[in-house]
Computed example of a mutant assay.
Amino acid sequence: MSTGTQTMATDTRSVVLEWTRAMDRHDPDAFTTFMDENCVFTNTGTGERLVGREAVRQDLIGLLERWTDLRIEVVNLLVAGDSYAKEWVMTGVHTGDLPGLPATGRPFRILGAGVGRLRDGKIFEVTEYWNLADFLGQVGAIPPLG
């Protein structure tokens, strides 16, 4: 369905891809339009569990402030009804302080995956899996893995 110049995705694959593109464009407002008002977003890398669209929006704003040049590439996307599994590669530069870790200015490349479920065409549940130790090694906070 089209609303002005913006086309709203209606199938699971399209929703997930458009949602990811909004993050890649660094657009927290567009990013959260694809999410249910009462969504639950679990980030296994940081251990955070966010509840609600606004909490997810604020988290993305903070992420974009700390990780500039952030880009995400979908490597694989599997869809079954209203559920999905997405493999991705995220790149960026650590330019903002994290708790206990001042900005290093170093680039990083994170491999990860996420699983989620839609309800009424909006992303309702998301769990993202990635390795925080790998990121910390790449930005020089700990010895590199491997």
Results as ranks from 00 to 15, higher is better:
residue 2 S to K: 15
residue 4 G to E: 10
residue 4 G to C: 09
residue 4 G to M: 04
residue 5 T to E: 14
residue 6 Q to S: 13
residue 6 Q to K: 14
residue 8 M to V: 13
residue 9 A to W: 00
residue 9 A to G: 09
residue 9 A to M: 04
residue 11 D to M: 05
residue 11 D to H: 09
residue 13 R to I: 06
residue 14 S to R: 08
residue 16 V to G: 05
residue 16 V to R: 08
residue 17 L to R: 02
residue 17 L to C: 00
residue 18 E to Y: 03
residue 18 E to W: 01
residue 18 E to I: 07
residue 18 E to S: 11
residue 19 W to L: 05
residue 19 W to A: 03
residue 19 W to D: 00
residue 21 R to G: 03
residue 22 A to N: 02
residue 24 D to P: 05
residue 25 R to W: 10
residue 25 R to D: 00
residue 26 H to M: 11
residue 29 D to N: 11
residue 30 A to S: 12
residue 30 A to I: 06
residue 32 T to E: 03
residue 32 T to M: 13
residue 32 T to C: 15
residue 34 F to L: 05
residue 34 F to E: 00
residue 35 M to F: 08
residue 37 E to D: 15
residue 38 N to H: 15
residue 39 C to H: 07
residue 39 C to Y: 03
residue 40 V to E: 04
residue 41 F to D: 08
residue 42 T to G: 08
residue 42 T to F: 12
residue 43 N to Y: 01
residue 44 T to L: 14
residue 44 T to V: 13
residue 45 G to R: 04
residue 45 G to K: 06
residue 46 T to I: 04
residue 47 G to L: 00
residue 47 G to W: 07
residue 48 E to N: 15
residue 48 E to L: 15
residue 49 R to A: 01
residue 50 L to P: 00
residue 51 V to I: 14
residue 52 G to S: 05
residue 58 Q to W: 04
residue 61 I to Q: 13
residue 63 L to I: 11
residue 63 L to P: 00
residue 63 L to A: 15
residue 64 L to T: 01
residue 65 E to C: 00
residue 66 R to G: 12
residue 66 R to V: 07
residue 66 R to H: 13
residue 66 R to K: 15
residue 66 R to F: 10
residue 66 R to W: 05
residue 67 W to E: 11
residue 68 T to C: 11
residue 69 D to E: 14
residue 71 R to Q: 10
residue 74 V to A: 11
residue 75 V to W: 10
residue 75 V to C: 12
residue 75 V to D: 15
residue 76 N to M: 13
residue 77 L to Y: 09
residue 77 L to F: 06
residue 80 A to I: 11
residue 81 G to Q: 13
residue 82 D to M: 08
residue 83 S to N: 13
residue 84 Y to Q: 06
residue 84 Y to D: 07
residue 84 Y to A: 00
residue 85 A to R: 09
residue 88 W to S: 13
residue 89 V to H: 12
residue 95 T to R: 02
residue 95 T to V: 08
residue 96 G to Q: 08
residue 96 G to P: 09
residue 98 L to S: 09
residue 98 L to A: 11
residue 99 P to Q: 09
residue 100 G to P: 01
residue 101 L to Y: 11
residue 105 G to P: 10
residue 106 R to C: 11
residue 107 P to K: 01
residue 107 P to Y: 03
residue 108 F to M: 02
residue 110 I to M: 11
residue 111 L to S: 14
residue 112 G to L: 01
residue 113 A to W: 01
residue 113 A to Y: 05
residue 117 R to H: 12
residue 118 L to G: 01
residue 119 R to I: 01
residue 119 R to N: 10
residue 120 D to K: 10
residue 121 G to C: 09
residue 121 G to L: 04
residue 122 K to D: 03
residue 122 K to R: 15
residue 123 I to N: 05
residue 124 F to I: 07
residue 124 F to E: 08
residue 125 E to M: 07
residue 125 E to G: 02
residue 125 E to L: 11
residue 127 T to N: 03
residue 129 Y to M: 04
residue 130 W to V: 02
residue 130 W to A: 06
residue 133 A to Y: 07
residue 134 D to L: 08
residue 136 L to G: 03
residue 137 G to A: 09
residue 138 Q to H: 07
residue 139 V to I: 14
residue 139 V to A: 07
residue 142 I to E: 04
residue 142 I to K: 08
residue 143 P to Y: 07
residue 144 P to K: 15
residue 145 L to F: 10
residue 146 G to Q: 10
